[in-house]
Design a binder for these strands. Structure first.
Lengths: 340, 340
DNA sequence: AAGACATGAGAAAACGTTTTCTCATGTTGA
DNA sequence: TCAACATGAGAAAACGTTTTCTCATGTCTT
């Protein structure tokens, strides 16, 4: 306890060895439950280790084991509302394994992307997770052929890689089925730009469930577009919908506001359902928004465990995995109880 | 070029030395512009290094230099809209210095906080930045007495530490002065809970600028409260305000919606100004919101450079630093041109 | 009683760098 | 012509671990 520390200021294995009166090899084996030694010695070393607060230097350890217990998260979405839950899931899953996460926002900039990837490789990350905001675009940096495994989440992946995404068809089906179950018959889908593959997937699932004559209105991802769509629909006077499935929560917010301004009651006259479950928005609409949740945190968790498995060389089948969405029921659709 | 690589799969300094026909010491000195050697040799080694793609292993380097070129970002705010811009600023400032950032979300959980801090220290981070969502609360983990420097941003710091925050009084003054400059005379401040020190600071600055009789309404940080406040004010029929300064953009959104529903024109009858410049919200209000921007990205940049300075042992004066806010003029106040 | 074997623990090498020291050779000055 | 010195480059130690050998001692077998 009174012996002096190494000059670095941190307690090293040598300090501990000196304190315990054994060699560093013995200390290492004691702490890692390796090798042969008297149980009493092992226990004593462990006790002294906690007493003097020894914690092994991860740099030194990583140098030898070629495992740094570090992964990189590359993101496009200036940590918007998609990447954030994904990150939370990753971190939550990996902290239990002693893995820390480098966050790198690359902003659609190839040069910045390369800088970050190089920096991470220099730091010997065990793997990389790439995330974006849409599944049909890839990050502006080539991650194929890297010396570490890469997992893609919510962004387009390389051919033989592991890619995770939310199941758009299933999510849209969930929403449409819910509207029908509540007795809504004249359904409309107000959504984002048609060039998003997710938009097309959801629209197809909507049409399948709602009937081919149910119309789909493509636009942009904004509140304003929700307003405009309602203005267009209600200018027709006839064939007005009684159930509206929106492509995201912002559109839904615009739709609900526009309906209120027209004196149309939500959910009495029309049920409205959103997508994303962006809570800060969904909870503040009047009435609070029933919406589809993509389980992004769970997606992040899966991505974290996946990249860890790859880093440890455990067998993992490549390909695209679609994770199910869930319905979050609030008050914008009427009805009660939980979704099936 | 034809010589085989080390078994690790990565190019080491030994591979490079063999390729160049020199010793590893010479290579190291060549690449770091250290020591003495023929200019021609240095150039040749550098050329071969890029040819075979040599990049020094940061773990090995860090082991020796006790600089890992890594910092940790500890956050409370499950990466909400405060921490995010701060993070972006940190990352942007540090990537140029080759520093990568570990992101750790600790969710008000002391145990999780300790786990993350320990993991970061094990990985020999050069410093830690702690961020939160309010300046009068500290993170649930003790960062005093750590073997690395700590900088606090938007959260309460330890006594002799460096702490960065936005200048609440200046920001509120900016907003109030803007309303007055536009000719508004009957001002109201609708804001959040009075137990926030930022709320009190801003309210004090508002009163100073607007006159002591200008009223301040304390509430919560939600759209709903904005609605309620307008309902209360307009139930009085007399002494109606013509300028409303809101404590955040969500309240402002609620205020604007409530005014529209009452047939009060914004900005013709009443000017409304928000706080935070949460773009996705501020741009979608009708009309788009004029609001105070706390320059959080800049704050993050400063925090990054600060922790780097401390890590390198450069002298840095401790204490609380307040960074100025700026006014972002959109259409909710009327008037034109830029703030003074 | 003597070889075979189990046990406990230390010595040394290894990981990939950087840095200090040493040394051979060439060059200058008187 | 010889000492003093500058130059270019390599050898070796160091950083803090883990892991593989090695070895002394003690305990069985027969």
């Amino acid at each position: 306890m009174t012996t002096q520390r190494a000059k670095s200021g941190r307690v090293t294995i040598h300090d501990l060895a000196r304190e315990a009166g054994v060699s560093v090899s013995t200390v290492s084996k004691a702490l890692n439950d390796n090798g042969r030694m008297a149980a009493e010695t092992r226990a004593r070393i462990k006790r002294i280790a906690t007493e003097i607060g020894f914690r092994p230097n991860a740099l030194a350890r990583g140098l030898l084991s070629s495992r740094s217990f570090t992964i990189g998260l590359l993101t496009n979405d200036t940590y918007g509302r998609f990447t954030l839950p994904v990150m939370a899931g990753i971190s939550e899953a990996l902290v239990d394994h002693g893995v820390s996460v480098f966050l790198c926002a690359i902003e659609d900039d190839p040069a910045l992307g390369k800088v970050h990837v190089d920096a991470m490789l220099d730091k010997q990350v065990d793997g990389i997770i790439a995330t974006g905001k849409r599944i049909d675009r890839s990050l502006p940096v080539d991650l194929a052929g890297l010396p570490v495994p890469v997992v893609y989440a919510f962004t387009a992946g390389a051919p033989e890689s592991v890619t995770l995404m939310a199941d758009d068809a299933q999510g849209a089906g969930l929403a449409t089925a819910w509207l029908k179950k509540l007795g809504r018959r004249r359904l409309v889908h107000i959504t984002g730009p048609e060039d998003f593959v997710s938009v097309r997937e959801r629209a197809a699932a909507f049409s399948r469930e709602a009937g081919e004559d149910a119309s789909v209105l493509y636009g942009v991802w904004s509140e304003r577009w929700g307003h405009e769509a309602i203005a267009d629909l209600w200018s027709a006077e006839e064939g007005l919908p009684d159930g509206i499935f929106c492509g995201n929560d912002q559109i839904a917010r615009g739709v609900i506001d526009a309906l209120r301004e027209r004196g149309v009651k939500v959910p009495d006259d029309v049920s409205v359902i959103g997508y994303d479950n962006w809570e800060i928005l969904a909870e503040q609409t009047r009435p609070p928004l029933t919406t589809v949740d993509m389980n992004l945190k769970e997606l992040g968790r899966e991505a974290g465990l996946m990249v860890l498995a790859l880093a440890e060389g455990r067998p993992t089948e490549p390909g695209l995995r679609k994770l199910p969405c869930k319905l979050v029921v609030r008050h914008s659709c009427g009805g009660a109880g939980r979704p099936e």
